[in-house]
């Protein structure tokens, strides 16, 4: 049963557009799937390989701008951003990896934090290339209806899930976890840690970029503040994974579900909606205190009170 769970969920999601949900709910579901992809991508580097990044907005934004710039300057469909960003993001990840991956722990985190900000400022100022703060707008949208966007991101999410599952059960996956657990021991066991950390970063960067390219096509408008922000992308993805459960297959997906819905609910509350960032912060602190392994990682702990009650009655 457990083996078929991903298939069953995928099948159910395939039928969702036929239920006749409102455009708003479809929009939320698309966001959940998109955040699952970014979360799963971050999880490869931060969760499994143990290299915590606070700069994934850089990869997300690069992906989005790849599509945007292709449209703006070459006049071709922004959908070409999806394949193109694989190449661009691999190149970017190699450069970033070469510079940042020689740093360890907090220093790596700080370097990536700077990276995200550098990208935002650069995008704001390279006006001829990126249109600066005016942003890039797609003048014609591919589909008016959300159904096809939903299927596109569903396929991206499912492929991401399968790819990561495949990687984590192979030699690569074992090496990633070994690097997280003890880099020096890994090195002495014949693992070229710099090389495998770079692979992990490339994988993570490319998948995040694909999500970014999808975002460009879906939203139809990007500017530096929406695709390169620190709190709304870089920190948000860390929260998605932490809330769901780092280094678990389902963690980022569950995390995305919780965070996107929570964000919508809190923002729509009267009076306190404006303070949603504060409330997010408080939730994160509570999760770290009581569920340090996230909802998926500490699932046993979470259902314990309920299971206990059932057996005693």
């Amino acid at each position: 049963m457990k083996k078929f769970l991903p298939l069953i969920i995928f099948a159910i999601l395939c039928f969702v557009p036929f239920v006749g949900l409102s455009t708003y709910v479809m929009h939320i579901l698309i966001l959940v799937l998109m955040w699952s992809v970014i979360g799963m991508a971050w999880n490869v580097l931060g969760g499994y390989t143990g290299q915590v990044s606070f700069g994934h907005a850089a990869f997300f934004g690069f992906g989005a701008y790849t599509g945007g710039i292709l449209y703006q300057h070459l006049g071709i469909s922004a959908w070409w951003g999806l394949p193109a960003c694989v190449v661009i993001l691999t190149a970017l990840s190699l450069v970033i990896g070469y510079i940042c991956l020689r740093l360890r722990g907090a220093y790596f985190a700080l370097a990536t934090l700077a990276l995200g900000e550098v990208c935002r400022v650069a995008a704001e100022n390279l006006v001829e290339f990126t249109q600066g703060n005016m942003g890039i707008m797609l003048r014609e949208r591919t589909w008016v209806d959300k159904t096809w966007y939903f299927y596109v991101i569903l396929i991206i999410a499912a492929s991401t899930y399968m790819l990561i599952k495949l990687v984590m059960e192979s030699k690569l996956g074992y090496y990633f976890v070994a690097i997280r657990e003890d880099q020096d021991a890994a090195e002495s066991l014949g693992i070229n840690t710099t090389f495998y950390k770079t692979i992990s970063l490339c994988l993570s960067g490319v998948l995040t970029g694909v999500a970014g390219a999808f975002y460009m096509n879906y939203m139809g408008y990007i500017d530096p503040a929406t695709v390169f922000p620190l709190s709304e992308v870089s920190i948000a993805v860390v929260m998605v994974v932490m809330v769901g459960g780092a280094a678990t297959f389902w963690g980022p997906i569950v995390g995305a579900l919780i965070m996107v819905f929570l964000a919508e609910v809190i923002r729509s509350l009267p009076h306190i909606g404006a303070a949603h960032q504060t409330i997010f912060g408080i939730i994160l602190i509570l999760i770290i205190m009581f569920l340090p392994n996230g909802v998926v990682g500490d699932f046993g702990k979470l259902i314990k009170p309920f299971v206990g009650r059932r057996t005693s009655s």
Binding site: K171, Y174, Y175, A178, E181, D182, A186
Partner: peptide, 21 residues
């Protein structure tokens, strides 16, 4: 310095990967 959160078997599998794919 074992790879702490891995099982004993996985620890050894990780190092065995050096000679095989």
């Amino acid at each position: 310095r074992p790879l702490q959160r891995m099982t004993t078997l996985d620890n050894v599998i990780t190092s065995a990967f050096i000679r095989t794919k």
